[in-house]
Simulated scan of single mutants.
Amino acid sequence: MRSASLHIATALALCGTWSLTACAQTTLGPVTGEVSFHTSSADLGVGYTWGHGVLTYGGRTYPFSVKGASAAAIGYSSGDSVGKVYNLQRIEDFAGTFWALSGEATVGRGVSGQLMENDNGVRIRLDYTRGGARIAASPSRLTIRLLKTPEQSSGEHTGNAKAHSAAK
């Protein structure tokens, strides 16, 4: 009986989250990019989240790392997220700290949705598929840092060599 009540409460909470993010999507404007990433979260009161992912923007892909914190959570979960990016005008605006109010009730496998925004006005609407055992209902903060690709690294190296040659 207790298990059934927990499942019903979880389903209602998730439906509320999905309907809020679905309604919000119409006011977010056009989609400017897409993300997919894998994260893990470990919590004992205060939690820590880490992971990596890929942003698709302007026909190119950009790898990034994710780390962050949350309050009022307990347990461990990991999983994959996919989402749409809104209001991204320049790739530089993607990196930064994203804020969200989030909730999760995962026992075994679970799904959830989240809407988050950074200081540059970039918004991400996410759909999660998680596994583990975790309960969380709190504000969360995720910091996204763009990673250099080998292509970008070699381009910067060439640019430094040109600058070094010009200085001679």
Rank of each mutant, 00 (worst) to 15 (best):
30 P>H: 12
30 P>E: 13
30 P>M: 03
30 P>F: 05
31 V>R: 14
33 G>Y: 01
34 E>C: 13
34 E>F: 04
35 V>W: 00
37 F>K: 00
37 F>S: 01
37 F>D: 01
38 H>G: 04
39 T>N: 08
39 T>E: 02
39 T>A: 05
40 S>V: 13
40 S>I: 04
41 S>V: 07
42 A>E: 15
45 G>C: 01
45 G>T: 04
45 G>W: 00
45 G>K: 00
46 V>D: 08
46 V>R: 10
47 G>D: 14
47 G>Q: 01
47 G>R: 00
48 Y>K: 00
48 Y>E: 01
48 Y>M: 01
48 Y>I: 07
48 Y>P: 01
49 T>L: 14
49 T>I: 15
49 T>C: 05
50 W>P: 10
50 W>Q: 05
50 W>H: 06
50 W>G: 13
52 H>N: 06
53 G>D: 00
54 V>L: 15
54 V>R: 05
55 L>F: 00
55 L>Y: 00
56 T>Y: 05
56 T>R: 10
57 Y>E: 04
57 Y>S: 08
57 Y>C: 10
58 G>Q: 12
58 G>R: 11
58 G>L: 02
60 R>G: 13
60 R>P: 15
64 F>H: 02
64 F>G: 07
64 F>S: 06
64 F>I: 12
65 S>P: 11
67 K>P: 05
68 G>R: 09
69 A>Y: 05
69 A>F: 06
69 A>P: 03
70 S>T: 12
71 A>Y: 08
73 A>S: 10
74 I>T: 14
75 G>I: 02
76 Y>C: 14
76 Y>G: 14
76 Y>S: 05
77 S>R: 06
77 S>L: 07
77 S>T: 04
78 S>D: 06
78 S>P: 07
78 S>N: 03
79 G>E: 11
79 G>S: 04
79 G>P: 09
80 D>Y: 07
80 D>W: 13
80 D>T: 04
81 S>C: 09
81 S>P: 08
82 V>C: 07
82 V>Y: 08
82 V>N: 11
83 G>R: 07
83 G>F: 09
84 K>S: 07
84 K>Y: 13
85 V>C: 13
85 V>Q: 11
86 Y>W: 07
87 N>F: 10
87 N>W: 01
89 Q>F: 04
89 Q>C: 10
90 R>G: 15
90 R>V: 03
90 R>N: 15
90 R>S: 14
91 I>M: 12
91 I>H: 04
91 I>T: 08
92 E>K: 11
92 E>L: 03
93 D>I: 02
93 D>G: 12
96 G>W: 10
96 G>I: 15
99 W>V: 09
100 A>T: 12
101 L>E: 03
101 L>K: 02
102 S>C: 13
103 G>N: 09
104 E>Y: 00
104 E>K: 01
104 E>L: 00
104 E>S: 00
107 V>M: 03
109 R>Y: 13
109 R>D: 01
110 G>M: 11
112 S>A: 15
113 G>S: 08
116 M>V: 14
116 M>P: 01
117 E>T: 04
117 E>H: 12
117 E>R: 08
117 E>V: 09
118 N>A: 09
118 N>L: 06
118 N>G: 01
118 N>Y: 09
118 N>E: 04
119 D>R: 02
119 D>C: 15
120 N>M: 13
120 N>F: 05
121 G>P: 12
122 V>K: 04
